[in-house]
Design a protein around this nucleic acid. Structure first.
Lengths: 195, 195
DNA sequence: ACCCTATCTGAACACATGTTCAGATAGAAG
DNA sequence: CTTCTATCTGAACATGTGTTCAGATAGGGT
């Protein structure tokens, strides 16, 4: 073992992100040292600086990749015809995607305060863009008479909080499958928007 | 100023907790040093150890006080007659209480991973006790035929996540008052449990 | 007026932190 | 086989960390 030098840029880069992701998720950004990340990759701490200018940029990179990937994944989804079908599609997509990437989701919600103001603003913009997809579905549904709700923006925040909350308790191999959970949540979402 | 010694145990203690609470909420437990907390109180770092055996116990103390106070506050609330009225009461209580203590709530949700296993288990027990109050209301309502829902436990988690989510976006002085927000959320909760 | 003791200071301890960089090294290119 | 350069090591830097403790100090009790 102990590959000590050579060209591994395209291998070490992802491995650093993977290690940082899992360590940040488990212990928190501030509680994880660059030496711990390096140790998980099997490299010295100095080597990390071939891949990130500093620790904060590493965190930002992880968050930005997550948000970009999430937005891209949603863009790649089909668009059902009716507001009701669109809302169901969003609900199931959100739960499936978030259960698939618990570490990314955890970090993106918990480590915002460790971002510099500019980096924070950038992530918030992406998050807002994602929320707006749901708000758009709700607004369309209200105009079409399919939904009855007091405030599209507040309903958006409430629904997303409810759906993302699945990550706090769901564990694979538990009493219910991810699909069964999604069906139960869809039932609640559907009723809460007055459909 | 610069009181340098003397008997201030009953004044310094709360001031340390207040400073720690606000600093932990703003920057995170791991990112805040004992010297920062001491500085906010106007005291040297060593003096903190007259009030806590170590940093971790300080965090645990804050969390435990929060959960104890929350459970006590709910116990002090009246118990309406019907399941529907009880659920509305819980919804409004939860939002009001959580909007009143944003720092405590934030820490209790975000800093769990910085607790030792025993301390974590203790807080989780208290949290579960609080959740069980809501689950009890839902189960009673189902038995009484007032609610229609697939799974009382999952509905409990969904409702609590939705309600607690208010803290992520609500700011005093915004578009809506806390009472108006609570009314909108109560509408969603009521419909999502099939009442 | 005096002492007593709870409270706080200030310095020290051993170790961890993020980051830098000269020099070693290994794989690719010729 | 030689050269080149991207990649990594290992040590160093300045600063910060939680925690301890002998000694100073101030307010309360007598």
């Amino acid at each position: 073992m102990a590959r000590t030098a050579g060209s591994h840029s395209d291998i070490t880069g992802p491995r650093i992100r993977d290690a940082a992701l899992s360590l940040f998720a488990r212990h928190g950004f501030a509680a994880v040292s660059m030496r711990q990340i390096a140790g998980a990759v099997g490299v010295q701490a100095g080597a990390l600086y071939n891949y990130t200018p500093d620790k904060q940029s590493l965190l930002f990179d992880l968050m930005q990749r997550h948000m970009d990937h999430l937005l891209q994944a949603w863009d790649d989804e089909p668009t059902p015809a009716t507001p009701l079908a669109r809302l169901e599609h969003f609900t199931r997509f959100h739960i499936r995607y978030h259960l698939d990437k618990p570490d990314e989701v955890f970090i993106a919600y918990m480590e915002l305060r460790n971002l510099s103001p500019e980096n924070f603003a950038a992530i918030e913009t992406l998050r807002r863009r994602y929320e707006d997809h749901l708000e758009g579905i709700l607004s369309q549904g209200v105009r079409a008479g399919a939904f009855q709700l007091a405030d599209a923006r507040i309903t958006t925040m409430a629904v997303i909080a409810m759906l993302t909350g699945v990550n706090t308790w769901y564990r694979p191999g538990g009493r219910l499958s991810a699909d069964e959970v999604a069906t139960i949540y869809w039932d609640m979402v559907r009723r809460s928007v007055g459909a």
